[in-house]
Amino acid sequence: MTVRLVYETHATTTDNEDGIATGWLPGRLSDLGRRQALELGERRREDGLDTVFVSDLHRAVETARLAFPGGVPPIRQDVRLRECDYGVLNGSSAALVAARRTRHIDEPFPGGQSYRQVVAATSAFLRDLVAEWDGASVLVIAHSANRWALEHLLTGKTLPALLADPPPWQPGWHYTV
């Protein structure tokens, strides 16, 4: 049983541009982000996608809806694809959250969750994905924490290494699950 998974992060938000760590807050795409979402749709239009799974946070849903107007391929929201919940730090400085990331691998952010909890949610999503979408080509649009979780689960990279020195953004990552 295998699934071809393409992963994309949501497009740029006003919070990204302002240096804010949105966490579980909804967030909104900026003008640049709306253009990026359209580009994502163009980039993936010929990929033969069977479906798109997306975080239920507004910025990810907005990205998917702009990329694939009319819901073709079908867009499915999944709460397990949410960004890490920074708890009391949702909406705070991105630099502050970045500086504290490695402290919250196993220990949740105050009032939030740990990166290990994001990995567990992503792992549960992948189990269901393989069981329900065997042989399919799937796009996932979510957040940086989910990308790190996928790298950890599917390539064996360690969470401490990923959180201390995150890989740079690129237009999509390809996995076989």
Score class of each variant (00 low, 15 high):
81 L>C: 13
101 R>P: 10
116 R>C: 01
155 T>R: 14
94 A>K: 15
140 V>P: 06
122 T>F: 00
113 Q>D: 13
62 E>F: 05
86 Y>L: 13
120 A>K: 05
113 Q>V: 13
136 A>P: 04
132 E>W: 01
81 L>A: 11
63 T>D: 03
143 H>M: 08
142 A>Q: 07
89 L>I: 04
103 R>H: 11
91 G>L: 10
149 A>W: 05
79 V>Y: 00
146 N>G: 03
85 D>K: 07
148 W>N: 10
155 T>E: 08
121 A>G: 02
99 A>N: 11
134 D>E: 15
99 A>V: 01
143 H>E: 10
65 R>F: 05
149 A>Y: 02
87 G>W: 12
134 D>V: 13
165 D>N: 13
139 L>R: 07
130 V>R: 14
80 R>I: 00
125 F>M: 00
145 A>W: 06
150 L>D: 04
113 Q>R: 08
164 A>K: 05
76 R>Y: 03
107 E>R: 12
117 Q>I: 01
128 D>M: 00
92 S>V: 09
162 L>I: 09
75 I>M: 09
162 L>P: 06
149 A>R: 02
90 N>Y: 10
85 D>A: 12
163 L>T: 10
70 G>F: 02
118 V>T: 14
75 I>D: 07
64 A>R: 09
70 G>N: 06
146 N>T: 15
83 E>D: 14
64 A>Y: 08
89 L>F: 15
100 R>H: 08
166 P>V: 12
113 Q>N: 07
139 L>C: 12
75 I>C: 12
109 F>L: 11
105 I>Q: 02
123 S>V: 00
91 G>T: 12
84 C>F: 00
137 S>Q: 14
112 G>C: 10
132 E>L: 09
73 P>M: 10
151 E>P: 00
164 A>W: 01
62 E>T: 14
115 Y>G: 03
